[in-house]
Design a protein around this nucleic acid. Structure first.
Lengths: 342, 342
DNA sequence: ACACTTTGCGCAAACGTTTGCATAAATATT
DNA sequence: AATATTTATGCAAACGTTTGCGCAAAGTGT
């Protein structure tokens, strides 16, 4: 027999001839309640199969114990892992997570923020959409006094805590690795998007070259959408230009994969003739042939840290909180696609 | 100047010298409100930057406009895509989604259900954990009168709507395909887990063989955890047994990948000497060399349909709802790993 | 001009908790 | 024994909406 009508603390109270206040306090372990009544309340609660109504509590307390997480898309491994990292921490602290996807659309991002605000989340964790250039919707969050933490896709225009990885150094280290392998003409696949991560990767590439006495050649920097097809096209362009480079560093694994396909189709040996490296450590990179050298972004860790930063800010509440920026050091994963020397 | 104190419909009402009821009705497009006041209310609402308090509304209405989704893990592409499919539909109908992960733990699954119940979600969509054998927590959901829909990992023990794919036929068709390619001794990698999807795939494999006059040989069925390492070990076992089969159908892509690695290390030609097929259409399968033949599970579609089923049930409300079972027909994706004939 | 319907809005209760204040009983202090 | 303190509980308001009911004003039909 299921309880047809939802049972409340009132029901418990009546059964015990006490008031709802006492029941509430008993359930919340308020010290001003005697052990006896607490026991009794707990017993009846179990017996009636009482389910607390968090909504009522949330209304009363002004806290929903829910935090909103905005990601461009949830079905990319990187974001899925970050979300998982966030959830690990949040659940431990008894918070639930609402995941929203912006699909990299500015419109959707704005709507989502409004929706989360209306849902009265206790704070927001977000990765900014690719096309977002105006940040007033995020400022609205801050204005409501809610904690906001950004990860991965960060910005200088918002004075909030952020955690990202050092794209510059990841890029720098991987190019340096290619140079150590004896590569002299290293091409770079990048994106025309003005998003900072690609600019940083380009900068790392450039600096690594210069620091090692290799001249920068703008003809070796190819722009595309960095998807598989973009990588293929970029590779074709390099062939058309003649004088094949001896290494390619793509700012995305998909781009590198496109290059690998074209190279293999043309019978070019990887890594002997052309070494290859990508960025992101997508799950597929360990399964390609040869396995692809790449940069791991520590997604799970990023999620953990982001959440920790969030809750830290959470605790401090009223006192003026000083936003913190955490920059993770990416790990380069060296696999056979770049190992010219054994 | 951000509005320091949250503004409510009361504030709007005062400013216009009307009551909160009128404001509420105006905002909800109640026809009993004149166009003039509606306009005025909307204007002031915008001007004051009013954010509706969904929690208050949820308390009053008994509807939170949030639905809970439970998946074993959010960072596997398949589940991430299903969730995305669910969200597409849900958001369209103005519902938000809370994603919870059970990590395939029974304990966690039970806790999660309780948490969602307390959060007063309007319904639950779930994929059952691997180890779950008792379903009383799900029955609790039904007892509270909340809609419940299951996907992928389904069960006969609950009388609810479910949507899955026809693992049997996916398996059957892919084995048939291998046979058409001329394979006569086809090995199968499976899991010892008692979870029905693997049983079904094994059944499809067996039936396809028998229907095509190929005797079933239990020595060709190898059990493992179906991860990469499991696939490698299973492959090694086949080598040890001598008399290599001419095809391998793994119930998971990772298992197939493990086999591919070992085969390549031993210089066995794929697909000429041994054809290979997996299951799930993991993202990496198109990037292996050779690309892996596999079965696509239509994850996005599954999410869409699950959500539609959910909301259908939602609408009907009180009338007795008859649970529906939808079985999607998986698509076999034929790639080079199984193409012996050109 | 009368009765009747429609239109537009206000009143007040309700949703289920939590909590400051009050109070009675029990205990401690002098 | 009288007063002060502690302990355990009750009272009632509050959180911000929504909505049934009621009522006056405006509109309709005869």
């Amino acid at each position: 027999m299921a309880t047809k009508t939802k049972i409340t603390i009132q029901d418990i109270a009546e059964k015990l001839n006490i008031t709802a206040s006492t029941v509430s306090r008993a359930l919340n372990n308020n010290p001003r309640i005697s052990e006896d009544t607490r026991k009794a309340v707990l017993k009846v609660a179990k017996q009636l199969n009482y389910q607390p109504n968090n909504i009522a509590a949330a209304l009363r307390n002004g806290k929903s114990h829910i935090i909103g997480v905005i990601v461009p898309t949830a079905d990319r491994k990187f974001f899925a892992s970050v979300v998982r990292g966030i959830e690990e921490i949040a659940n431990k602290l008894n918070y639930k997570v609402i995941i929203c996807q912006s699909y990299d659309s500015y419109e959707k991002e704005v709507q989502t923020i409004d929706a989360l605000l209306n849902a009265r989340v206790d704070g927001i964790i977000a990765s900014i959409g690719k096309d977002t250039e105006d940040f007033s919707h995020y400022k609205k969050v801050l204005a409501s006094g809610l904690p906001l933490v950004l990860f991965d896709r960060t910005t200088d225009q918002l004075d909030v805590s952020q955690v990202g990885i050092n794209d510059y150094l990841g890029s720098y280290k991987i190019v340096e690795h290619l140079i150590q392998q004896g590569c002299k003409r290293i091409a770079h696949f990048t994106s025309p998007k003005k998003i900072s991560i690609f600019r940083e990767r380009l900068r790392g590439y450039t600096d690594a070259l210069l620091d090692n006495g290799i001249p920068f050649d703008e003809n070796l920097v190819i722009s595309s959408n960095l998807q598989l097809e973009g990588g293929r096209q970029s590779m074709e362009k390099l062939f058309e230009a003649g004088d094949l480079p001896d290494a390619i560093f793509s700012a995305s694994d998909y781009g590198a994969m496109g290059a690998m396909q074209v190279l293999k189709e043309r019978g070019i040996a990887i890594p002997e003739r052309v070494a290859l490296a990508g960025f992101s450590n997508e799950p597929f990179t360990s399964f390609t042939d040869p396995p692809l050298t790449t940069v791991d972004q520590l997604s799970l860790t990023m999620g953990n840290i982001t959440a920790e930063l969030f809750f830290e800010q959470f605790k401090i509440k009223d006192k003026k909180f000083v936003p913190q920026r955490t920059v993770l050091m990416p790990e380069i994963i060296i696999r056979q696609s770049s190992l010219k020397k054994r």
